[in-house]
Computed example of a mutant assay.
Amino acid sequence: MSLFSWLRTKKPGLDGAQLKRMEQLRKPTALGGGSLRDQRWVVLDLETSGLNLNRDQVLSIGAVVIEDGAVDFSQLFERTLQRAETKLSPSVLIHGLGPSAIAAGSDPVEALLDFMEFVGDSPLLAFHAPFDQHMLCRALKDSLGHRLTHTFLDVAEIAPLLCPDVPLREAGLDDWVNHFNLHVGERHHASADALATAELMLILLNRARQQHIDSPQALQERLSQWKRRRQAPSF
């Protein structure tokens, strides 16, 4: 056995059909200069067994699609993942995913393959995206040996960027939903939270166009500039 074999990450045991699906997953495309309206965005939310980035697991995935300037209700995704040895934290009181629901969930390999096929080459949006991105990356690596390289934008940062007149800073999704008087369904389930985030994002995309931010690439660049200004030391 060579020295380098000790350094390789052990690949999950996928069967032939699963490996073929892995090979056929679409590569992400960079955000381009086309119209914001024409961009397909996948808005996701995760429910997890807790908030520890290194120990807790993804329990469910909910996602909706924004395309042609609206939420496309023909493109919805929701899966609960089966987790045999997951210890649930008090967060179960919020998202309601108890042991019976998790035991009846989908095989994580199949659920994650389904999700990545649903995403395709589209960029991802989430509220407080760094948490969702980290947890999703871990789940994909652990179950599929797959490295997520899709663009991931944070709606919690896009909102104050495009709405500087709104006196909300470090605000949660509920704060923005209430500010814009959005009528959303049951909250704190992955699919419902994804839909609430998508409804907020539709307002933000309209604000972007009003500010002459006309393409996904321009939005990404403006967001990067805004983040750099916030992180710059003040003298």
Rank of each mutant, 00 (worst) to 15 (best):
R222V: 03
C163S: 14
D121H: 11
Q211G: 01
R147N: 08
N178R: 15
S234Y: 03
L153T: 00
Q82S: 08
S49V: 06
Q231A: 10
Q39I: 05
T9S: 04
L182I: 10
E221C: 00
S143L: 00
R228H: 05
R222T: 15
R187W: 07
D121T: 11
G96M: 11
G16D: 14
D107G: 04
H189C: 08
D175I: 04
M135V: 13
L200M: 10
L182M: 00
H189K: 09
F118Y: 14
Q24K: 14
L124G: 06
V42C: 11
D45G: 02
L168D: 08
G98Y: 14
V71K: 13
K20L: 10
A190W: 07
A171T: 03
T48Q: 04
L144Q: 04
G33Y: 10
F235D: 10
L168T: 05
R26P: 04
L93M: 12
R8H: 02
F73K: 14
A63T: 12
A171Q: 10
I94Q: 07
Q39F: 12
L168R: 04
I61K: 09
E170D: 15
V119M: 00
R83V: 09
Q217V: 09
P90Y: 11
L88T: 02
Q217K: 15
D56Q: 05
D175W: 13
E221Q: 11
V184L: 04
E67T: 06
P164A: 04
D175A: 14
R230T: 12
N54L: 10
G69M: 11
V109Q: 05
P160Y: 03
G105Y: 01
S2E: 03
D68Y: 00
P216I: 04
L3D: 12
L59T: 10
K11L: 00
Q24Y: 10
M135P: 13
H179L: 13
I94G: 03
E110D: 15
I66G: 08
V155M: 09
W6P: 00
T29Y: 08
G172L: 04
V71R: 08
G105T: 07
A30Q: 07
L113M: 06
A196W: 10
D154N: 06
R8I: 13
L93C: 00
L25I: 11
D38H: 07
S49K: 12
R209T: 15
C137K: 14
R207S: 11
L112E: 05
A218F: 13
D142G: 02
F152C: 13
P12Y: 00
